[in-house]
Structures are given as structure tokens and as C-alpha cells.
Simulated scan of single mutants.
Amino acid sequence: DAAGARAVLADPQAYAAEVRADESEAAQLGASGVPFFVLDRKYGVSGAQPAEVFAQALTQAYGERAPLKIVDGGEAGGADACGPDGCAVPQR
């Protein structure tokens, strides 16, 4: 809403704590410039890199992820647990 946007723009401290937290997190992840890409909150790719570097980083990050845990929502192995109106939580 316009009034809310104006209030934030008029207050130099609005969201300052959130921005400082983001800056701190970026520094902890190793970001020292832009662009900087974080993959799975574990890997960082700094700067404009060739596609091969991104492919290697994505492959490594994906390979180290924990496997998905399927929530069994019924006879279809969970396939009927979610629909256009959201996800049903099975009653036990």
C-alpha cells in the first residue's frame, strides 16, 4: 500500500536490523561482492562464472542433499495428499 511504502522510505531505520542480518549472513557464507550465488546454503559461486562452473556446483550440491522423504497420504503413496485446495493431513 502506498502509505506503508512512504512510511518505510521516510524512516532510515526501517528494516535496518533485517538488512544488517542479511549482510552478516552473506559475509558468513563468503560473499564479498556481487554477483554471488548461494547453493543450498552450503556452496557459494562468486562472480560471473562460465556455465560449466555453475553446472559443477549445482551437481555437487544436488548430490549431497538428503533424499526426499515422501509423506504417505494414502494408497497412491502420497500422490493424493495434496490438491488444488492444499494438502490434507491424514488423521491417524
Rank of each mutant, 00 (worst) to 15 (best):
D1P: 15
D1M: 12
A2P: 10
A2F: 12
A2L: 15
A3R: 05
G4E: 07
G4V: 04
A5K: 11
R6P: 09
A7P: 06
A7D: 13
A7N: 06
V8G: 04
V8N: 05
V8K: 10
L9P: 05
D11A: 07
P12Q: 03
P12W: 06
Q13F: 11
Q13L: 12
A14W: 11
Y15H: 14
A16H: 09
A16P: 03
A17N: 13
V19Q: 09
R20M: 12
A21Y: 06
D22K: 08
D22M: 07
D22H: 11
E23D: 15
S24L: 15
E25L: 14
A26F: 01
A26D: 01
A26K: 02
A26G: 09
A26S: 08
Q28Y: 11
L29V: 08
L29F: 12
G30W: 06
G33C: 06
P35Q: 03
F36D: 09
V38G: 01
L39D: 05
L39K: 00
D40Y: 01
R41V: 05
R41Y: 05
K42N: 10
K42C: 06
K42S: 12
K42D: 10
Y43S: 07
G44Q: 03
G44Y: 03
G44H: 00
V45G: 07
S46V: 06
A48R: 10
Q49I: 03
Q49A: 00
P50Q: 14
P50N: 13
A51W: 13
A51G: 07
E52C: 03
E52A: 11
A55G: 06
A55Q: 14
Q56D: 13
A57K: 00
A57R: 00
L58P: 02
L58Q: 05
Q60T: 11
A61I: 04
A61V: 05
G63D: 01
G63W: 00
G63K: 00
A66K: 12
A66D: 11
A66T: 11
P67A: 08
P67Q: 09
K69R: 13
K69V: 15
K69P: 02
I70C: 08
G73F: 03
G73E: 02
G74F: 01
E75L: 13
A76N: 15
A76I: 07
A76P: 04
A76L: 15
G77V: 06
G77F: 09
G78R: 04
A79R: 15
D80I: 06
C82A: 00
G83R: 08
G83K: 07
G83T: 05
G86F: 02
C87S: 05
C87V: 01
C87Y: 01
A88I: 15
P90F: 02
Q91P: 12
